[in-house]
Every structure is written in C-alpha cells, then in structure tokens.
Amino acid sequence: MLKTVEEIKAAIEAAIPGAGVEFVPNPGPAAEHSLLLRPESAVAVAKFLRDDAELAFDYLSNVTGVDWPDKEIVEKVKAMRITTKTVDGVEQQVEETVEETRKRIEPGCLEAVYHLYSVAKKHGPLVIRMRTENRTDRVTLPSLTPIWRGAEFQEREVFDLYGIVFAGHPDLRRILMWEEFKDHPMRKDFVEPDDYEYEPTAHDHVLKRAQAHPAAVVASGSQRWRDEGIR
C-alpha cells in the first residue's frame, strides 16, 4: 500500500538529510497532494524515489510546465501613524489608524510538474514539482531525464513552450516550434499573432473588430485571383 505524501516526505528527509522537501496541499476533490523539491537536491531525491525498494517510482508518466506570472496584489493595510496635531493650542503627537492601499508585486515563477507511478508496485501517482527563481533570467532547473528517460521529450517540450532550461538534459532543443522561433508560446503573457479572419457573429464586439480587421476585405480580395486567373 502506498504511503501518504507526508510519509513519503518523511522518508525522503530521513534518507537525504537537508533535502528541504516542501508539502504542497491540493485543495480540490482529487486531493493529489504534491512535494516541492529544491533544485539543488532534486536529482538525489528523484534517484531515491526511483531506487527505494518500497517506493519504487520507476515510471515517469507526465512532465509539464506551469506558468505563474508576476501578480500585482493590491491590498488595503491598516497602519498606525504618528501625526502631530494641535489640540487646544498645544502640539501633541497622536497615534492614528490610517488605511493605506499598498501595491506589491508577488514574483512569479515557472514550475515543472512530474507525475510518478510505480509499475513494479502498481501504485501512484506521486506529484513532484520544482520552481524556478523567476520567469526571466533565472529559469534553470535540474533535468530528471538521467533518472527517467521518459522525461526526454517532455522536458524538451517544457523548454520550448515555457522556457525552463533543464540543466543536464542531453539534447535540449526546441521540439514543437521551429528553431528560429523566439517566444515561449504557452506562457500566459505570450501575445498571439492576430492573423485570422473573424467570422460575423452575433457578438457585437467581435463583429466590430471583424470589420476593422485587415482580413475583413478578404471576401472581395480572394475573388480577384479567381477572376484574373493566376498567371
């Protein structure tokens, strides 16, 4: 019988001191909780998960990326402030509660999620995840392809679509997009090319946009080559 995620976490920490595994709860009905690994110790933990006789997670099913963009959080904070007030002609320092609107940017990250199963013991899944430091320049995570080769193409895909660089991957190239392509299209802030024809629809805002769109003249244009014939 498979241990709970907490027990697996304890087993990892007992085997690899200082692994720094974090428990990430899943609030949904599926309740597939996950473990957040530190990039420094991830390969050692993964090797332990694969080779431990009881856990035996020998089958890496799924690897994927998730983009968590920087979030701007607007919150109202009650702050104590000392102001000088003149009360009855005497200057006094008074403490006052003031409501302030503060904006802070919660830094985002890119996340790689791995789903592990055991073919030998027929249990699973165990979800492990790793997070990059930010979304721009510090996006390197250790590759788990040397542990499970099933990750080879999937990590390449995450590199292609999300831009996570997997250190130690034997062949990290773009897999789905062409080599010259510059962007990482699955990121939430990717701006898609706006080059398709809009259908006339019942939704006013779509229709308005369709009429303003350069492709709207296509209906008259595409007739042209038929009339003239292509010479």
Partner: peptide, 19 residues
C-alpha cells in the same frame, strides 16, 4: 473548485492522461 487533478485511462495507444 481550485485544485488540480491528473486523470488517465488506457487508450488504445497507451496511457492517455489529462492534467
């Protein structure tokens, strides 16, 4: 509700999963 799930079945080609 917020949360995540991984569902998989034995498709004719192999393990087809949705995360």
């Amino acid at each position: 509700k917020p949360g995540e799930a991984y569902g998989r079945i034995e498709a004719p080609k192999g393990e087809l999963g949705f995360y």
